[in-house]
């Protein structure tokens, strides 16, 4: 059973194991763990952790990774800037914001995607597209960020589609996957009126 002395020893154990405890306090710990089986067990567990940590192998990384990383980041930043030439609606979503903006955005997107200059070449749902999932009181709020290819006046433009979908919490997992697909396909087919049970926001840039 833990007593006050045990609590005191526990508070010293980390520094003891890290080797940063004073000699006097180290003696205190050693004397106690010899006589207290409970603290001795805790000490053995922590000691084992340090021993195994010392033996674990290090991670490997590709050669020249750190030399190339800044350029990769700059490249992504520049790409992002170029993509902003498309209309953009970017939100840090919350349920209330979603409810406010959904009405205004959809017609705009409908118009955008119905524009004869645009044609979607890739409408495959990609699970990698899920960027954020929050479980709220009554639903999952799922943010998607999917890459699409648009053809604009014979020029293929890589673009991205943002969607936020609110799916009832009690949906079964398989149903959720199907619903995600349905919502995206509906969105791509511009058939937005039939899905009144869902709320979703989309943006393209």
């Amino acid at each position: 059973m833990l007593n006050r002395r045990c609590n005191k020893i526990e508070s010293l154990l980390i520094e003891y194991l890290e080797g940063s405890l004073t000699i006097d306090n180290s003696k205190l710990v050693e004397e106690h763990i010899i006589n207290c089986s409970s603290c001795n067990n805790v000490y053995q567990d922590c000691k084992l952790t340090f021993e195994v940590l010392k033996k674990e192998s290090s991670y490997s990384i590709p050669q020249n990774y750190f030399s190339n990383l800044p350029a990769l980041i700059q490249n992504k930043i520049s790409t992002k800037k170029i993509k902003f030439t498309f209309p953009i609606f970017s939100f840090r979503f919350s349920e209330s914001i979603a409810a406010i903006f959904v009405i205004g955005l959809i017609p705009g997107l409908y118009f955008l995607l119905n524009d004869s200059n645009f044609e979607i070449n890739n409408n495959q749902f990609n699970s990698e597209a899920i960027t954020e999932v929050e479980l709220n009181e009554n639903h999952y709020s799922i943010n998607l960020n999917n890459e699409y290819y648009f053809t604009e006046k014979d020029k293929t433009v890589e673009s991205k589609l943002y969607l936020q979908i609110l799916i009832p919490k009690d949906s079964h997992k398989e149903e959720m996957a199907l619903e995600l697909n349905d919502v995206i396909l509906d969105y791509l087919l511009n058939d937005l009126k039939t899905k009144s049970e869902y709320e979703y926001i989309a943006s393209v840039y």
């Binding site: 154990l13 922590c46 195994v52």
Partner: peptide, 16 residues
């Protein structure tokens, strides 16, 4: 410190 201590204990138990 308490969090770290609990983490060390749990990892040790798991490893054991």
């Amino acid at each position: 410190k308490a969090n770290y201590f609990h983490a060390l204990k749990k990892i040790g138990k798991y490893v054991k």
